[in-house]
Design a protein around this nucleic acid. Structure first.
Length: 604
RNA sequence: GGAACCGUGGUGUAGUCGGUUAACACACCGGCCUGUCAAGCCGGAGAGCGCGGGUUCAAGUCCCGUCGGUUCCGCCA
């Protein structure tokens, strides 16, 4: 059967007047005036008004039109007419014209959908996800999917023009050491053994460099079995890039050009290049974050030196025992905030891990409230100096280890920036965070770990530190931060076996363990590995920010809920006993009981 | 693993300090209607309040548990 569609609904304009057209789509809305019937016909390009007029339309088609309902799928043959003067609809791209229908074919009827496709009212997200194919019919969702497609297309165009090859890497692979929990896939053929789904193609892209591919990229699905957030899904997409014979500046320059290209093409924005580079340590000092939102102030100030001898013991003792006292000047909030709001800040600080939040309000006479009474006039004036405080300001302080102070105040800063409306949402704030530490301390495990991953090269001048003082070693790593969200991160990689072995040693891997986990990779170093480096973007996150969305679910066609379920397909679901047997898997008694109850309730 | 918020016709909401018939808008069904475009007018049907238990003379309203959604902490780069 041929549909002979001549145009998409949303593309009809005045220039098409008098043309005979065939359009197909869904009935978006229907206005039945008894005599004349208007149908807004929808496809992915937009709406066009179709007119069924008994004086023009043949009687059979008109009778059919009377039975049309929302979401019926129809084909209309007709003629494009200019709308009568005064009848144009400026809200519609096709509003200058309409189609006079000659014939109508109902290709499919439709039940009334569980929520309105044409409404902009918020719909319960669970319902949207259950009927995702209906949700995706909404213009807003289609626009986002189109944007995502265009970003992907432009990425491919740009990287192709720069000599990159798109190469696929395995989904069924071996666990890579990226800290997150792996999704495992049982092997039927090798009883008791498992594949891991990739957390990223890290090792493969380095092996491609070893293979002489020189420039590789991939838009690739990655998997991490950790709890979800608005900006975290268990399966997500990375834009993965790797290049050989490059240094840090080469990689950063290429990526700046890429991002500038995307911003210009998608958003019409000219980025100022090169992008700002902020050393990690400075970001932590000033913003308490390794992905600072620098669209607003409220910077952190270190007052340790000012308060180290004060009578307020919480402060002086902290400094004496090697901690720091840092604060934020919440400008104007001394007058604006109620006591209740200040207490809320304290509760927030506690929930972020602070022992407490010290505060005071700056007045003409000095300070009042909170901890003001513990300080002499002289101490207050030096404190206000450091904090750049003026009457009416609210000062908040955390006294603790450096890491705790930074983290707590960094989070409070974000909360306050939002609460006080200091964030300019029209600004695109892009910057690099560079000079990362190579290692970071894992409190729970009680050991040093790779801050980025164990293949990150140290700064050349810090190579020595790998053996003498690892915690001080800095990495040739760089993160790209957009409006306070990490959108990409990468590094120059280690390309010499001796350095890689030192790295493993610094991480406390025994020779045997390194051999067992990465033997194949270490061996590859012996066969001529070029210097190389790259980056990986959170593709969904990038699209989310460019689309102005707050949730990853809005830029993924079929996302999972916060409890990692797919409400449409019902995944995950119990497996059949026969499947489990083939895979050599037996459920625990607890899992067995749970599956039983799911089945009995009819939930699965 | 923890916390908070939410769950009332198909959808979005209201429902006060527990009180007798659960309200409104949209959608839906029928009728009228030849220029609307979130069409209009008239009429109608549709929920016992996520589920289970408890307190009470009486429970959308209070309590406990549970399921689901969302957000945050932990986790995750």
């Amino acid at each position: 059967m041929s549909f002979r569609r001549t145009h998409y609904c949303g593309e009809l304009r005045a220039k098409h007047v008098d043309e005979a057209v065939v359009v197909c789509g869904w009935v978006h809305r229907r206005r039945d005036h008894g005599g004349v019937i208007f149908v807004d016909l929808r496809d992915r390009t937009g709406l066009v008004q179709v007119v069924f007029n008994p004086e023009v339309t043949d009687a059979r088609a008109f009778a059919e039109a009377e039975r049309l309902r929302s979401e019926f799928v129809i084909k209309v043959e007709g003629r494009v007419r200019r709308r009568l003067p005064g009848m144009e609809n400026p809200n519609l791209a096709t509003g200058e014209v309409e189609i006079y229908a000659d014939s109508l074919e109902v290709l499919n009827t439709a039940k009334t959908p569980p929520f309105a496709i044409d409404s902009y009212a918020a719909v319960d997200e669970a319902l949207r996800l259950k009927y995702r194919y209906l949700d995706l019919r909404r213009f807003e969702m289609q626009e986002t999917l189109a944007l995502r497609h265009r970003v992907a297309k432009l990425v491919r165009d740009f990287l192709d023009s720069q000599g990159f090859w798109e190469i696929e890497t395995p989904m069924l692979t071996k666990s890579t050491p990226e800290g997150a929990r792996d999704f495992l896939v049982p092997s039927r053929v090798q009883p008791g053994e498992f594949y891991a789904l990739p957390q990223s193609p890290q090792l493969f892209k380095q092996l491609l460099m070893m293979a002489g591919i020189d420039r590789y990229f991939q838009i690739v699905r990655c998997f991490r079995d950790e709890d979800l957030r608005a900006d975290r899904q268990p399966e997500f997409t990375q834009l993965d890039i790797e290049m050989a014979f490059v240094d840090r500046d080469d990689v950063m320059a290429l990526n700046e050009a890429l991002v500038a290209f995307l911003f210009k093409e998608i958003l019409g924005i000219e980025l100022q290049l090169p992008l700002r580079r902020l050393p990690y340590q400075e970001a932590m000092d000033r913003y308490g974050s390794d992905k600072p939102d620098t669209r607003f102030g409220l910077e952190l100030k270190d007052v340790s030196q000012v308060v180290k001898d004060t009578g307020f013991r919480v402060f002086s003792e902290t400094v004496k025992s090697g901690g720091v006292v840092k604060g934020i000047n919440v400008e104007g909030a001394g007058e604006k905030f109620s006591r209740r709001e200040i207490d809320e800040l304290g509760e927030l600080a506690s929930s972020y891990g602070a022992k407490g939040l010290a505060w005071m309000i700056v007045t003409q006479e000095g300070g009042k409230g909170g901890i003001a009474k513990f300080f002499s006039a002289d101490e207050l004036s030096r404190l206000f100096d450091t904090m750049a405080a003026k009457p009416g300001d609210l000062l908040v302080f955390v006294a603790d280890k450096y890491e705790v102070c930074s983290d707590v105040l960094g989070r409070l800063r974000l909360y306050l920036g939002d609460k006080l409306g200091l964030i300019d949402h029209n600004r695109w704030d892009l910057l690099w965070i560079i000079d990362w530490p190579l290692f970071e301390y894992n409190e729970t495990e009680g050991r040093w770990e790779a801050a980025h991953h164990p293949f990150t090269a140290p700064l050349p001048e810090d190579l020595e530190l790998l053996e003498t003082d690892p915690p001080r070693a800095r990495a040739q790593a760089y993160d790209l931060v957009l409006n306070g969200t990490e959108v990409g991160g990468g590094s120059i990689r280690i390309h010499r076996r001796d350095v890689q072995e030192k790295m493993f040693a610094a991480l406390g891997f025994s020779k045997e363990e390194a051999e067992r986990r990465f033997g194949f990779f270490l061996e590859a170093f012996d066969y001529g590995t070029p210097p190389h480096g790259g980056i990986a973007y959170g593709f969904d996150r990038l699209v989310m920010l460019m689309a102005g969305k707050n949730s990853l679910r809005d830029v993924i066609a079929f996302p999972k809920t916060a409890s990692a379920q797919d409400l449409m397909t019902g995944a995950p679901a119990p497996a059949m006993d026969s499947q489990l047997r083939e895979l050599h898997i037996r459920l625990t008694a607890e899992a067995e009981r749970r599956v039983q109850s799911l089945t009995l309730d009819g939930r699965k």
